[in-house]
Amino acid sequence: MTQPGPSHTERVMWLRLARTRGLGAIGFARAIAHYGNAADAIDDLPARARSAGRRVLEIPPPEAAEAELEQIGRLGARLITGLDPDYPALLAAIPGPPPTLVVRGDLSLLDRPACAMVGARNASAVGLRFARELANGLGREDIVVVSGLARGIDGAAHAGAIDSGTIAVLAGGIDHIYPPEHAELHARLAEDGLLLSEVPLGQAPTARDFPRRNRLISGLALGTLVVEAALRSGSLITARYAAEQGREVMAVPGSPLDPRARGSNQLLRDGAHLIESVEDVLDILSKARCPEPPAHGLEDLPPEALGDLFDDDEPSRAADGDAPTDTRSLPALDRLRALLSPSPVSGDELARAADLPVGEVQAMLMEMEMSGEIATLPDGLVQRRRQS
């Protein structure tokens, strides 16, 4: 028998507490564990803040929560709270799960086994192809692919799994399209996949929002697979969250000559599972075990463990790869260079990945070969030469 969800009043109170500035996901969980419900927490927290010498606590009024719910409904989206029986069980099991989720699309994807797939924004053409192939293969086995809709590996993973099921976790509101060139993919995900975020509609992401998003990407999945990642990148943050959440960590090995593979190769040295095929991923996921979620995803914390409810306890990890980058604004030759790696690739595939005419790409490759920047193999594939 399906458990009933919260009443409208409970939903409004929960949303008001969730949107209280400075409370944070862990502070929210502690408040609910201590007070038992959002309404009592809202009644008492302002006094607690004053006695703690904090500034006035900014709890949104009921009208603001009602307006947000109405806005979500107009978009054809839905607010899922920690009180709802269909709150994702795997996400509920992470420390400090998001109190609310704004979702749009196919909600049944949250009930299927999932694998997170992340990697470099400035991915190589070979990496992009492999990510698409892996995502497509996982989809054929009924595995949902979770990623962050960023450029590079994220976009390739979503594209490869769009027909079978994929979830995009966004750092901003689900109605904020970023990057702009993913507008069509964003629209397709809203219909055939699922868009998910913990922040309100209309909110543009800031640098600190990307690590917060990363913990949700790993939290929704049985395991996280890194395809390409530099030593300092948001993908490695996602992998660290996965390990801390008790999930499987997997990585695709890359050439030691390619800086984009150093982070993923480091993960392998640190004990991540080596992935060379869809079958490798399926084998790891079949053995994955995740913690049992507590009720509503909230820890039953004793009063002495409350600590300071008002600390801003949101994830604050940073890495070079967290900040949005736009390689499409680069000159054509630099865009082509960014896709080349020591792994052989065809000119046609480079043209597709760079969104450039094949003839223009072939001309640039000829110049790069004459200058010694690349090597052309007997089968016509090209690879970047090792820098001396």
Rank of each mutant, 00 (worst) to 15 (best):
M1Y: 07
P4Q: 10
P4S: 13
T9D: 14
T9W: 03
E10C: 08
R11M: 12
T20I: 02
T20S: 07
L23T: 04
F28N: 05
A29I: 01
I32W: 02
Y35S: 01
A38L: 12
D44H: 12
A47P: 01
R50C: 06
R50T: 13
A52W: 09
E68Y: 05
E68C: 02
L69N: 10
L75A: 08
L75M: 15
L79W: 09
G82N: 13
G82L: 10
L83D: 14
D84T: 03
D86E: 15
P88L: 03
L91P: 14
A93K: 08
P97Q: 04
P97E: 01
P98H: 08
L110Q: 03
D111N: 13
C115Q: 07
M117Q: 12
A120E: 00
A123E: 01
A125Q: 02
V126S: 05
V126C: 07
F130E: 00
F130V: 03
F130S: 00
A131V: 04
R132K: 13
A135I: 08
N136G: 15
L138R: 06
G139Y: 04
V144H: 10
V144A: 09
V146W: 07
V146C: 08
R151W: 00
I153L: 03
H158N: 09
D163N: 14
D163M: 05
V169Q: 01
L170H: 03
A171P: 06
G173Y: 05
H176V: 15
I177E: 10
P180L: 07
E181M: 05
E181D: 12
A190P: 02
G193L: 11
G193F: 09
E198W: 08
E198Y: 11
F210Q: 04
R212N: 05
R212I: 14
R215L: 12
L216T: 13
A221Y: 06
V227F: 00
E228D: 06
L231P: 00
R232C: 04
R232I: 00
L236Q: 11
A243M: 12
Q245S: 06
R247G: 10
G254F: 00
D258C: 04
R262E: 01
N265A: 13
L267D: 11
L267T: 09
H273Q: 15
L274W: 09
E276S: 13
S277T: 14
D280K: 06
D280S: 11
I284M: 13
L285N: 11
P293N: 07
P294S: 10
L301F: 15
L306T: 14
L306H: 04
G307N: 02
L309C: 09
D313G: 10
P315I: 10
P315D: 02
R317N: 05
A319N: 07
S329D: 08
D334P: 01
R335P: 04
L336Y: 00
L336G: 01
R337W: 01
R337G: 02
L339F: 00
S341V: 00
S343E: 14
S346P: 08
D348C: 02
D348I: 04
R352G: 03
A363L: 15
M364N: 01
A375W: 01
L381W: 01
L381H: 14
